[in-house]
């Protein structure tokens, strides 16, 4: 259950949603992308209130990035391109994305042969291709090996640099510190703090870690 949650996300910003298990991070994401109906409240993008089909504006990359076992990487992108009604020439952009995400050599591989990192990249490539200006990453780094984590961190940074606004949920403080510009700390559906990483560090002061502050806020 979420209660009184309100925040803004700037263009190209990476906003971290930090909280213990059950704090409401995934619920927040599902509400934002239109897969859960909030009892009240509005979600605005560039001043306009978004309706039920806001998935094309705010897209979610779930914690378990499942893809179709019997579809190739390229077919995932083709499906999204057709669904989103992209203009002719989308293939060049798709190829460019595959190259950027290191998927070009795997473009004709079936979903069932991809590792978790590859599946995640496939979904991100498809979502970026559709042109969603806001991406939500639900616990994106869980289950990835160190190299995969580094690649994803770089990818998130490059997406933000390209002007895409990003929200990511995590309960690992180091990850949030390394990636996010600003943090919202949640506890039982309520935002208990909304601060920049620098402010949180200042709050910790000498002799205390960010983990100490986090545990104090969510106790």
């Amino acid at each position: 259950m979420l209660d009184g949650l309100g925040f803004t996300l700037e263009r190209g910003e990476v906003l971290g949603l930090l909280g213990p298990n059950g704090a409401g991070k995934t619920t927040t994401f599902l509400c934002l992308c239109g897969l859960l109906r909030p009892e009240s409240g509005t979600i605005r993008f560039e001043g306009k209130t978004l309706g039920g089909d806001r998935g094309r504006t705010i897209s979610l990359i779930p914690e378990t990035p499942e893809v179709y076992a019997m579809l190739t990487v390229w077919e995932h992108l083709a499906f999204v391109a057709r669904s989103a009604g992209l203009a002719a020439g989308w293939e060049d952009r798709a190829l460019e994305l595959l190259a950027r995400f290191g998927l070009l050599a795997r473009r004709d591989d079936l979903g069932q042969t991809l590792s978790k990192g590859m599946r995640q990249k496939t979904l991100i490539a498809a979502t970026v291709l559709a042109g969603a200006p806001v991406l939500l990453f639900d616990e994106p780094l869980i289950g990835l090996d160190p190299l995969g984590q580094r690649e994803l961190r770089d990818l998130i940074r490059s997406l933000a640099a390209a002007g895409i606004s990003i929200m990511m949920s995590t309960h690992i403080i180091d990850q949030a510190e390394a990636l996010c510009d600003r943090l919202i700390i949640m506890k039982a559906g309520i935002a208990v703090a909304s601060v920049s990483v620098a402010e949180l560090r200042a709050q910790a002061g000498a002799g205390r870690t960010l983990e100490d502050v986090f545990l104090e806020l969510t106790a």
């Binding site: 992308c33 239109g34 897969l35 039920g52 089909d53 998935g55 094309r56 897209s59 979610l60 779930p62 378990t64 990035p65 499942e66 893809v67 179709y68 995932h76 499906f79 999204v80 669904s83 989103a84 009604g85 979904l123 498809a126 979502t127 559709a130 969603a132």
Partner: peptide, 16 residues
């Protein structure tokens, strides 16, 4: 077929 399919449909901008 899976919750991921619903998310993909939503991300792909298909109308409900």
């Amino acid at each position: 077929r899976s919750s991921a399919e619903a998310i993909l449909f939503s991300n792909a901008g298909l109308r409900p």
